[in-house]
Design a protein around this nucleic acid. Structure first.
Lengths: 111, 111
DNA sequence: AAAACTAATCGTATATTTGCGATTAGAGAT
DNA sequence: ATCTCTAATCGCAAATATACGATTAGTTTT
């Protein structure tokens, strides 16, 4: 990729939102999150039984969700408990809430 | 890309959120949207003057934002007025609000 | 110690995204 | 008709993302 400008000066807020949005940018990951959210608590089990995708692929999706801070996993042998990272989830909720709030509806735009 | 399953049965809601999230998944696009939101009205002008990126690259970002329905552009020769698509913006806001709301905080999770 | 089980990682293939400069298209202005 | 200006599109290169099967790592069970 040719980059004329290596260091575009993004605001931290933009980077934060973009990182999370990117993680949300795939329907499988949305459904994984919805699934975890609908669990009474954390999920211990094989997500391969729930989603018709290869185990390695799911693992990659989980990795990206972890990277964005939206979930956390803790070893609970022989399985792993996957949870929504509630603290970061709240932060993300707030980030997106503010982001979308930032628009004054129909501000006398005579286009 | 090898796909064992061609037609994964995603919920429409998941697809909708993922499409928008994907469009939000790049800091440049977040900043473009923030810029448009901070305009008193729609923006007519050369976004290249605002962002240190090539004109063609900006055009591509705008295309993706348009594709996700977040902005609209109308010809106002010799320029184009770019606006937040307020109607879809509200829909997106609601989609994400519901998505994030869907989490019961600290639901007696003893992990 | 060996077998079994889960989840991560590796290696690979292909698709998509991101970026640029160059060109094109369309509308006004000269 | 020609020139100018804006924004889209084209063509290309490189980086990332997505998916799979195979392998590995780490536990637990036998």
């Amino acid at each position: 990729m040719n980059r004329a400008l290596e260091n575009i000066n993004y605001k931290q807020n933009s980077l934060d939102i973009a990182l999370i949005a990117k993680a949300l940018g795939h329907p499988t990951r949305i459904e994984i999150l919805n699934y975890l959210n609908n669990q009474s608590c954390c999920f211990t089990g094989d997500l391969v039984d729930v989603f018709p995708i290869a185990q390695s692929t799911i693992s990659q999706h989980l990795k990206e969700l972890k990277n964005a801070g939206l979930i956390k996993g803790e070893v609970k042998p022989p399985k792993i408990k996957y949870c929504i990272n509630s603290k970061n989830w709240s932060i993300a909720k707030e980030l997106f809430s503010n982001f979308f709030e930032n628009n004054i509806d129909n501000k006398n735009c005579e286009i």
